[in-house]
Structures are given as structure tokens and as C-alpha cells.
Design a protein around this nucleic acid. Sequence first.
DNA 1: TGAAGACGTACCGGATCCATA
DNA 2: TTATGGATCCGGTACGTCTTC
Lengths: 349, 349
Amino acid sequence: MTESSPVPTKTRKPPSQADVAALAGVSSQTVSRVANNRSNVDEATRQRVLSAMQLLGYQPNSAARALATGRFGMIGVISFSLSAHGNSRTLQAISEVARISGYSVNLVGPEVATGGAMEQAVTKLTNQGVDGIILIEAQILDHPNRNLPHGVPLVIADGDPDQRHPSVDNNQAAGAEAATAHLLGLGHRTVHHLAGPQDSHSARRRAAAWFDTLKRAGAPVPPVLYGDWSAESGYRLGRRLAADPEVTAVFVANDHMALGLVKALHEAGRRVPHDVSVVGFDDVAESAFFLPPLTTVHQDFEQVGRLCVSLLLEQIADTGHRERRVQAVVTPELVVRESTAPPPVPQSR
Amino acid sequence: MTESSPVPTKTRKPPSQADVAALAGVSSQTVSRVANNRSNVDEATRQRVLSAMQLLGYQPNSAARALATGRFGMIGVISFSLSAHGNSRTLQAISEVARISGYSVNLVGPEVATGGAMEQAVTKLTNQGVDGIILIEAQILDHPNRNLPHGVPLVIADGDPDQRHPSVDNNQAAGAEAATAHLLGLGHRTVHHLAGPQDSHSARRRAAAWFDTLKRAGAPVPPVLYGDWSAESGYRLGRRLAADPEVTAVFVANDHMALGLVKALHEAGRRVPHDVSVVGFDDVAESAFFLPPLTTVHQDFEQVGRLCVSLLLEQIADTGHRERRVQAVVTPELVVRESTAPPPVPQSR
DNA sequence: TGAAGACGTACCGGATCCATA
DNA sequence: TTATGGATCCGGTACGTCTTC
């Protein structure tokens, strides 16, 4: 116990199947069977092998196993921005479920978002050896001339433009419609929109649903302002909205921009929600503690992550069939707090 | 070009070295040389091999390579909470630098944080085959009876209790001292502290530095309140602080809790910074847009991530030497905004 | 005769050492 | 010396064979 080996133990090789086999007095194949919980092993033999493993501290070599089986026990995740709130939440859920399912997660972070970046990332992952790939927020897919490989199981989270691949999406349209309708229902003549960046599918769909809802209600459609998800952009564009007395209600594409907008309104002397109502999107944990607490659309990123893994594992298992196109949809929910109210001067219809 | 193969292309095996060798009319070893950019290959042969690779779409099999070389080209990252702001920022930086250095990132997410969870995660990663491990926020290491293996290269980000491993840390003490001293310098009689959870090293060091700074200044030391990093906990504990008229300055261990505190103060009718000054920690992107903009301590998580990878790669390369104990420190910086001011009733000394 | 348990052998796809032209 | 090929190995798994009751 207390002895310290004089020899540098750093270079000792990890024990292999063969070592275990030698110690247990069986063949390495039997060790393999025990390691994989096969049934056709005598109980006494199994115990002998197990204790030999224990004694040596045997750990199977995943590279060797992967080479032999062609399976890697690893799923690749491509995300171009972990700083985006939803992405890291989704990633966390993915890694959790993957671990439970016996898979590791190989994360490929942001690269220069050139046209071929997505393909490069996919290639890199398949080289590294993954059984499938999850793509988070794949705005680069816009480029219609570029296609993703169809050979490897793939699931797209929140970003499949043309439904060519299995995907999991928040029902952005439903969320945006709920937000817009809520404001309209409060009596606002119309609702302005502070959108996310134009290369984001989520942002586009929110904007489209906002537009449709306004149209259906017969409300005038004001011009859209495009931010970049950051509070800073919300503030910068918010100053323009704050300067416009026509603005009494704003649907903002995410909570962080909404925070910036609220600050801009505050500085302009326009109270929220008394003078201007604001609705966000995401329901980040902090939004309940904004001043005032933000009415927003709650997204269940954990559910998105879970579904991504499920769909991917299905594809991986389902080697026989041709690839299927499955779309899973997670429904967001409007959370009404204190940043919304009827307009200052009641409008008659 | 436009032909579509009638045979299901799904099951086609990826081309191997041998296939390339056959097509190029060389041996597979020569293909290996070309793939690894060895010098002793005739230029003409190299070109022949390269175009064969191109034609077949050859991608080296990483499992086979790992098996043969013992290197995996992969670093493991263990993080028990990606939702913590700093962790995901650090992770993003790590993944970026790792990619540039030719390494993949194997992410192990949260598990039940039992005593052995850390060791399990490390074991899992070494099984999967990684060349080294980065541990983010290793609060579980507290348990002094548990040790991490010394066989595998390891770097700890923001959480090494006893400096037994190479680590990268923000200089929490300097940041906390700057925050506390700033408030004291404004004329506050003392500074209250809303700390992070007790099992977090970062939280502890911030609290310790706050304590020391108060002591050195001869200021009375009020009791500490312990939150859990969330805005909700900041709000909940903040209500207690807000009810105490003695409280005129609070140093909060992170920005999110500070947001909750500000809300609690606001509800209690105590204005920030007029009645109570608040300083946060982290400088999340949103904190400049809080109401009021938050004075806080900026942490450079990108730098932390970069340094982690550097230290780890050094260890990996440095197989000859015994393991070294290197500590890198990143210095945070106080960012003064509008949540701090002199106390309402000037104190005479 | 037949099933269950144990074993042997041929790979998986590369890298490395050594022999060779 | 320079460019190339051959043999054997990395550490497992798949599958066929042989033994035993």
C-alpha cells in the first residue's frame, strides 16, 4: 500500500486482453466474451476472468475495438457557436443522453463560416471515427449548392432549411405567433419585430410567423430590424425603436436582445410595460429577474437535445433501411410576466 | 458526373490504404508515407498516390492509426455544468484551439456528482482513448481522500485545490480584492458578500479575498450568504440583504446572482447605486445592459481555454520528463459601470 | 446426436522496422 | 544514399472448429 515504486511508472503499458487471459489461464477470446457480456461463458471462468481484470486494472482499448467492429461508440456534434445560449443548453442535453446511451461526444467547434466549413467539419468527424453526427444551428446550409453527405447518419437541430435530413426543431412559428398574438390581444395596434441575424433559420421562422400573424390580424406590418442575438445589438437597434412614438409593442427574437431594447427604452424615458410592451424568446434563466421580468417564449432545449440523440441512434441502428426523413418538433410556450401590458392610449377598433 | 448508381451506395465500405495503393500501383506503405508527408517519396509517385486518394475519396481510418501509434489525436474535456457561463466559454475556446492544433475534443458532460464521479469520468475518457484531459471547474476534487490518476496528462481549469496538477486559474483573489477595494474606496463602511456555492473553489477564493480585504482595511466583516450562481438564488438571498438597512454595498460572486439581487433591492425600494452599490463577477456580455449597467470583474475565459490546451499539449509532448507542476494565472479586471456609487450618507472616518 | 462452452485463426487498417533494388 | 516493398504488430472481434457431457 504505502510502497512507492522506484521505477518511473509513467511508461508502463496498460494491460491488454492477452495479459488478462494469461493471468486467468484462458484465451484472449474468452476475455473478450466476458468483457462483452456474452452468455456462453462458464460462470466460474467468468469470475476468474473478472478478478484478473480487476487485479490488472484492465481497460479495453477503444481504438482496437473500433477497428475490429467498425463502430466507434461516438457521436459527433457540430456547433458553430457555443456562446449562443440555446446551443450550449442543447449540447449539454446531448452529452448527457449520449453518455447514458453509451456514446461519447466528439465536439467540433466554430470554424470560419465559409461555404465549405460545414462539409469540412463533417469530413473531419467522419475521419475521426463517429457513428453519427448532430448539427446544431446549421445556418450555413443555406447555400443551396452545397450538400451534406448522405452516407453518415445525421440529425439537424434547429436549422434544416429544406427537410432533406432528419431534424429536431422548436416550433418557432408557434412560439412567435403566440408572442405576437399576445401583444395584439392586449390591444396594441401592431407589433414591431427585432429579429435575429438573417442567416439564422430560427430567426427567419420567427420573423415569418410574426409577419403572418400580423397579416392575419389585419395589422400594419412595420419594417423589421435585424440584430445579431447580442444585447448590444438589441440596445443599438432599440434606440431607433425607442425614438419612434408609434412603437408600443415589440416582439424580440431572443431575450438578450430584449434586455438591450429595454435599456434603450429606459434611457429614452419610455417605461416598460407602461409605454412599450416587450416580449422575448428563449426564456433564459435570468429573464425572470430582468427589470421588469420579461414576458418571453420558453424553449425546451433539453428536449431538443434528447430528441436529437434518439433520432440519431435510431438511424445508426437502422442500417438496413434507406434513410428516413423524420422531423421532430418541440413546442415552445409563452410565459407571461411583467413586460407586457395594454398600450398606453387604448385604441378603438 | 450525372449518373446515379442503381445500387444502394449506403453499404459501400470506405476506401482503404490498400485500395489507394492498388490504384496507384504502389505498396500500401508508400501510401502511408504520402499520407504522413514523409520526405522519402519520389515526387512523381507522390502525385500518383495523391490523385488516387482524391479519386477514391480516401480518408485515413483514425481507429487504425490510433491502434498502431498509441496516439489518438483527441483530448478529453470534463465539465460538470455547461450551463455555467464561464464553463461554456472556456469550452468553446478549448475546442477552437484544439482544432487548430490538430486535436479533437471528447466532451464528457455532467454526471451525478458523487465522490467518484470525477474518477469515473477520467476512466471513461482514458478508455475511449484520449491523449490528455482538461478538467473544468473540478469542485469534486475537494474530497481529499480521492486522487486523480497521475498517469495521464491532465490540466485543471479553475479548480485545483492543492496544486497537485498543472492548472490554469483566473486570479480570483485579485478580482475579488479589486471589487471589494473599489467599494471601500467609494466610502462604504463595509462590504457584504453574496458568495457562490461552497463546493466551488472559485467561489471560495473570491470569498477569502473579500474577507482579507475587509480585514486589512479594518472594516467589520458581515456574515456571508451562499447562493448557487443562479439569478434566482441572488434574488432570494437578496431579499434578506435588502431588508437590512446596514447594507450599502454588496460584492456578488457572479453577475447572474447580482441581477437577482438588484431585482430584490428594486422591489424593496432601495435604488442601485444610490442606496446600495453592487459589484458582480464574470462580466457576462449582458451585464453592460442591466439596469443599471453592472460594475463587475471581467474574466478572460478565452485565455483560460487557450492556456489549458497549451499546457496540456506540452505535457503530452513532454513524455520524457517527469510530470511538472505548472500553474498559469489569468488576471481579471475590474470594469466600473453604473451600479456603484458612494454610500447615501457619507461616512466620516 | 446435439447443444453448450472453450479455443484458434483470420482479419480490421494503418505505422514501423528492416531488407531491398 | 534514396525510393520502395515485405513482414510483423497494435488489441481487439467474428466465425468456424473442437471438445465434453
